[in-house]
Write a protein that binds this DNA or RNA. Structure first.
Lengths: 344, 344
DNA sequence: TTTCTAAATGCAAGCGCTTACATATTATTT
DNA sequence: AAATAATATGTAAGCGCTTGCATTTAGAAA
């Protein structure tokens, strides 16, 4: 028996000599059908190679068992791990993850969100909270639950699963200051449309200010998150008069690029200049010297986000924010500031 | 005017005082409707915040404007760049990319393919060609076009967009041999379900054999593609009697892990041991010393795959395979073999 | 004007599935 | 064995959209 079209519920039903309703129940609520009939139906499904038609299901049941995620980019590793875990967790619960990227652009993000919604996702995972209010209105109007990852605010409006970027930045900045450094630089990611980047800059700025230091251009720069940009920016920064002895980075990718720059300039890290990363992606421990950085709970974040968004989608309840801890991981790119070349 | 449900075509139609057919045409074939009516419809769409229901569209038109991709993993950077480009290209053409992962397991892959098909993807992009014949049969039976990336065979059965892994491995192996090395090791990815890994091993093996050397355990190992596994395996390999002077790696991630191992063992790269990567991901140039590796045309592959799969999907024509070139990028992790410690 | 043609719109039948409700079957109790 | 309850299955009405065909309308030609 061969059909020219993909087999449908109806084909299966005819083949097993039952109604479509029974076949549907076999698939969705198997224990509502008698063992004998079920076997027959299952055999028919197997024989015909039947696969449910997603569109039909979505249309009839108004559920898709799908969660969407919009992340800034897949190109660097920043979101990779968290996303992978999110995916695994959802997948284990029979839920599909749809991933879209925004290139750190909030218009593109809005567009992608719209696309996901039109595909009927049951919930959405977003990165950060820097976006137009209209996006939130849209989502709420459509009654689509969403969680915001990678950031946290004490705002009951939204469900956050992340950490306090400013606090994390402050704590590593304090640590660096305590090591005796006096001249600082910071190379941040582009802060437009990016609350994490902004918070990190602010955290560092605040701590330095408390220590009587104003961090500003040209010692404060913004460049995209890439090795190359990190390298170029560092090259500029470290050839400025009054070279900083410690440079904060928006993330590890940039910091790794900085290491290339220091090699190029024949500067020793951390003897001549300390490099401070952020995020603790794999790369951070792979480079030489390995980066002192802020460890971010990627996996935990992915897992919690999965758990929460599924709960929100299934039970139609508001989600409970989760705040996660970050910690400083000391590796070797950060050292003490030793005045006038003195060895300790 | 507020509806309690998401606005439908029907709502828009009523609101604009036209039929649903006209609204549909406004969206899909705008120049089939008079300017005046179109404006009215567009206004209604805007006012109601209408978003087409994907399921309904899929059901009625039997098209989804969606391409699926199943890659082994998102967790390391291997596929990231190619995937990102694939996504961008498709997106520019108004096509959505659905990404799923298989964890390098062909059963999971088959499962994900099934899920994508059931979602009505118009085409599928897969990595490599190591999978059960039944998967190909399924796809062909369903008349779903697919392209295979990251590998190439002279097999008109399938549409390949990739490169010859064996050839690439051979060419770098020859290069290494020409540098005078006599003792080799290789740490490969897991070769089960992975034709690329197998081809790379085979290429190296063949070249060494031509030079009278048999590469085998314990100098040939298989471990997952991760920094940690690369490090551990290297630790083992380099403490074997008769330590190799050159070690080939299944990819750059493992090779970067190897660099950590050499530091741990206080071995100089490349003076004591040469490290040879594969893939030329960002990481390769970020580590110290930067990796000599095989450059793979990630972006080109992504772009071509997008172009071809869209053409196959739209025009229902068989796809033309594309073979891409790889080249050796010489950085500093590979050096000459200098007998008895002699400096050159 | 009227007539004819072409363009614009409407009508209505599905696409494959779920599900409330009706009906048939089986198991349990008397 | 009949009456009742519980369980299993079938019937059929949509879900939101597209599209072939019929109908209306606008524009061109007479």
């Amino acid at each position: 028996m061969t059909l020219k079209h993909a087999p449908t519920l109806d084909d299966v039903a005819k083949h097993a000599n039952v109604s479509t309703a029974t076949v549907s129940r076999c698939i969705n609520t198997p224990d509502q059908v008698r063992q004998l009939t079920r076997k027959r139906v299952e055999a028919a499904i197997a024989e015909l190679g039947y696969t449910p038609h997603f569109g039909g299901m979505a249309l009839a049941s108004n559920r898709t068992n799908t969660i969407g995620a919009v992340i800034p980019t897949m190109e660097n590793a920043i979101f990779a791990r968290g996303l992978q875990v999110l995916q695994e967790e959802l997948s284990a619960a029979g839920v599909t993850l749809l991933v879209a990227t925004s290139q750190y652009d909030s218009e593109q993000e809005a567009h992608q969100i719209q696309a996901l919604v039109s595909r009927g996702v049951d919930g959405i995972v977003l990165i950060g909270d820097a976006r137009s209010e209209s996006v939130y209105d849209f989502l709420k109007g459509r009654n689509i639950p969403f969680v915001l990852m990678w950031t946290h605010k004490n705002d009951p409006q939204h469900c956050y699963v992340g950490f306090d970027n400013k606090l994390a930045a402050e704590s590593i900045a304090k640590h660096v200051v305590s090591l005796g450094h006096k001249r600082f630089g910071m190379i941040s990611g582009i802060t437009a449309d990016n609350d994490r980047a902004r918070a990190r800059v602010q955290g560092v700025k605040d701590v330095l200010k408390q220590n009587g230091i104003i961090l500003q251009a040209p010692y404060l720069m913004e460049v995209p998150y890439s090795l190359e940009d990190g390298k170029e920016a560092t090259l500029e920064l470290l050839t400025l008069p009054n070279r900083p002895t410690a440079v904060f980075f928006g993330n590890d990718v940039q910091a790794a690029g900085a290491l290339q720059a220091t090699r190029h300039l024949k500067l020793k890290v951390p003897d001549d200049v300390s490099i401070i990363g952020f995020d603790d992606i794999d790369l951070a421990s792979a480079v030489e010297p390995p980066l002192t950085t802020v460890h971010v709970p990627h996996r935990r974040m992915g897992r919690e986000a999965a758990r929460i968004i599924m709960r929100m989608a299934r039970e139609k309840v508001p989600g409970q924010s989760v705040i996660l801890k970050t910690d400083i991981v000391e590796r070797r790119s950060l050292g003490k500031f030793l005045p006038q070349d003195g060895k300790q």
